[in-house]
Design a protein around this nucleic acid. Structure first.
Lengths: 141, 141
DNA sequence: ATTTTCCTTTACGTAAACGTAAACCTTGAT
DNA sequence: ATCAAGGTTTACGTTTACGTAAAGGAAAAT
């Protein structure tokens, strides 16, 4: 059996299109240590791992993570296999904090969703009033 | 009956302490049109409404809203009572978009929570390995 | 052959959200 | 009276996350 499997690769514009970001953004993420494409000549070649990282980075952004924070998590995740005790405890600490953040965000979102619904209701109501007002005017006119 | 009720007020540092932000931040939010304190001489006096807006602004921030977006929502919310049809439809449009954002964020968070749990498991497992390794060494030593 | 089409690097520019410092009131406590 | 604690304005500085332009290499289409 052959253990060397051919792996899909992506160009920078492949990824840019798929995730709707500019190539500038992708190069910037590399510069910040979030992606590690190989080179063919001077052209960047992205692996599925890079693709996943890009995906995670963007999701992190939506959740208010800075690029530095995402990088930190990636680095830690990579190092867990060979991590020493101190490292691991540190990572557990960070993970705990992130989870607390996420719980807070979950509450925030649920509240905001309620409020958006209320606002929508109020808005629809006001719209009805405006429209029934218009009808009265039409009758009168 | 007296309709003029005395209303609680807050100083800038009251709010700064309560929400753990600097006074600079609070003044900046005023400058951006998010807060509207009255003045006593030149000193700012904040109403409960200001307090709520500060709270909402900060929550918005946690959810990735820009100050401009929060202001937009506040302004629209204030104007709904007297809003004309175009205004109202516009606001409904925005509200719909925000809700879509929130649904996306909800999914993001749930996924991230799963992954954080996985990472934590991996981490704890690695930690156990490290520690059982240590015990072996102690025995041997 | 030359014109697109992608890709590259280098580097300055920018918007958002404050930080920070200077320079100045005012007011209650010592 | 003076001094510390809190308030003010003005204004320049800083970080993050890219945008944008210049200047060019390589390959594929016309």
């Amino acid at each position: 059996m052959n253990t060397t499997t051919k792996i899909r690769t992506y160009s920078i514009s492949d990824l840019a299109k798929e995730f709707d970001v500019t190539t500038r953004t992708i190069r910037f993420y590399e510069q910040q240590g979030l992606l590690n494409p190989t080179r063919q000549g001077q052209t960047r070649i992205y692996s599925p791992k890079d693709r996943v990282r890009l995906m995670l980075t963007l999701r992190g952004k939506r959740l208010g993570f800075s690029l530095a924070e995402s990088k930190e998590l990636f680095d830690m995740y990579d190092s867990t296999t060979e991590g020493d005790e101190k490292q691991l405890l540190y990572m557990l600490n960070i993970l705990e904090k992130k989870q607390a953040d996420m719980r807070q965000q979950l509450r925030d979102i649920q509240r905001l969703q309620e409020e958006l619904n209320n606002a929508e209701d109020r808005c629809l109501e006001a719209l009805n009033k405006v429209r029934s007002g218009k009808r009265q005017k039409q009758k009168a006119g």
